[in-house]
């Protein structure tokens, strides 16, 4: 049953086989995607025609590799910008929220905490449409009242940033709160006794302590934003992010350039994942 209890050989072997199969199930689609990125073929399928880097570097016109694919490169750049702003905004507001819920007491704190958790249980599609509606309503209102046209309230880059920000902040808040809860508050009291004011305490004592959690949460926020599909789908304007752009290509038939992009995404996110793990181990 467990390590310390005796098991029949057949039981141990079949259990281990099940776990191995599970990991095969987990990695098969990713492995196949990566391998077929290098196949010298016009379709992402077998048979194997030999090794080729065409889908990365070929300038066209028959095969356009990712390095020469202007549309996909633009989408990658848009996703980078989106993720950059989302991770900065979520980290700032999420850290504020962590301080608010861990160190302050105020009426209706429970209700506000519940509201803060709500984005966890609202499906992403719903967040997307409600934000689309609200931005539209606000846009109409401002135009009617002040005669002003606010372009970012239509589906656009900044609406995507706001939409993703609205739920990723909850994750950042939870991660930073978890670390703040373990903080020894006598350190703050000591600093206050020695004449520091509240801001000096936060700047020199609490924030350095929180840094691993903030860096980790920021990394996760970056990835969540980079890969978000459901919420972005409804808010995206004329600049599609990478997942939206890939979706349109996959839906309408695919070329191995998608495998090449996928491989880059897999490598990139694995590096971020391992780095994140390493940072949190060290903390």
């Amino acid at each position: 049953m467990i390590r310390t209890l005796p098991n029949s050989r057949a039981y141990s072997w079949s259990y281990a086989a099940f776990v191995v199969l599970y990991f095969v199930f987990l990695f098969a689609p990713l492995a196949v995607t990566c391998v077929l990125a290098f196949n010298d073929s016009n379709f992402p399928s077998l048979p194997w025609y030999g090794f080729s880097l065409d889908w990365f570097a070929s300038p066209g016109p028959e095969r356009v590799g990712i390095l020469h694919d202007a549309q996909n490169l633009r989408a990658i750049w848009t996703s980078f910008q989106t993720a950059f702003w989302v991770s900065i905004m979520t980290v700032v507001v999420g850290t504020c929220a962590a301080f608010l819920f861990e160190q302050e007491n105020f009426p209706l704190k429970g209700a506000l905490y519940f509201l803060m958790l709500a984005p966890l249980v609202i499906p992403g599609v719903i967040l997307g449409i409600s934000q689309l509606l609200a931005a539209n309503t606000a846009g109409f209102f401002i135009e009617d009242t002040f005669g002003l046209d606010v372009p970012f309230l239509r589906p656009s880059f900044w609406l995507v940033v706001l939409g993703q920000f609205s739920f990723i902040t909850t994750f950042v808040t939870l991660v930073v709160s978890a670390r703040l809860r373990k903080f020894d508050r006598t350190l703050e009291e000591a600093a206050l006794n020695l004449g520091a004011n509240r801001w000096q305490v936060i700047r020199h004592i609490t924030l350095p302590y929180l840094r691993p959690a903030i860096v980790g949460a920021g990394t996760v926020a970056f990835l969540m934003s980079f890969e978000n599909f459901n919420t972005t789908l409804f808010l995206v304007g004329s600049e599609p992010t990478l997942p939206i752009n890939l979706y349109l290509q996959v839906r309408d038939g695919s070329t191995p350039v998608i495998n090449a992009i996928s491989l880059l995404l897999i490598v990139g996110s694995s590096i971020l994942a391992v780095a994140n793990l390493w940072v949190s181990r060290k903390a």
Partner: peptide, 25 residues
Amino acid sequence: LLLPFWVSELVRIYGWMILLRESGV
């Protein structure tokens, strides 16, 4: 166990599509 889930859902679904479709692996 965690590694595949850092990768975009779209990439994972795409992997299954090229595995399972009629001309798939």
